[in-house]
Amino acid sequence: MEQMIDREKLLVADRVTFAYKTRHQTVWAVRDVSYEFEAGKVYAIVGKSGCGKTTLISTLAGLNLPSMGEVYYRGTSTYRMNRNHYRRDDIAVIYQNYNLFPLLTVLENVLYPMELQKKPKKDAVSIAKEKLLSVGLDGSYLGRLPAMLSGGEQQRVAIARALAGGQRIILADEPTGNLDSENGDLVMKTFQRLAHEEGYCVIIVTHDPQIADESDIVIRMESGRIVT
């Protein structure tokens, strides 16, 4: 799909191609994907397993560099930026299996990104509590370890952690995959509120058609390409 790409937009994929190479074969997971992601919208990337959704967001998140093409954040290519800083300050990722630190409490998990950003402790604690409240977790949760939380609560802690660092782009890889429908709805409503009321750019990879229906824009992928 040909389109004019404005690289100054928030997050831009410009002819992104990614190949997994081994000694014996090369698999083209993402082929020539170009798209502009804007603030204030919820994007759902859908497609069959193996169509390249997760690989695409790993390049958007700066975890991998594209084999060809470039990813731009506010006009700067991920090839030319410090990707540690990019992941720390500009983009947050939420996972299907939550990936909380098992040895840190709820509060400490949410404090962690601000610890990396070297925010003052007092401010960080205040922000952490605010973000936890925004996802429906009150003060009684602060001292608990992740093992003492339900799946939905863990995912909400993960969302609070993603918000605490102040990053304006949230990538979520199958965030409701391990949740029941009630918790899934709760998570989706949170994403919608973040995008529509607070101007976040939320990009969700999902198999769930309901999630796709509730998103502002649905991007369908097939064999590594965007088809619609």
Partner: peptide, 13 residues
């Protein structure tokens, strides 16, 4: 997994 989460959150080397 723990190390990968730290890496994905921008933890320096």
């Amino acid at each position: 997994t723990e190390l990968a989460v730290m890496y994905s959150m921008g933890c320096s080397s």
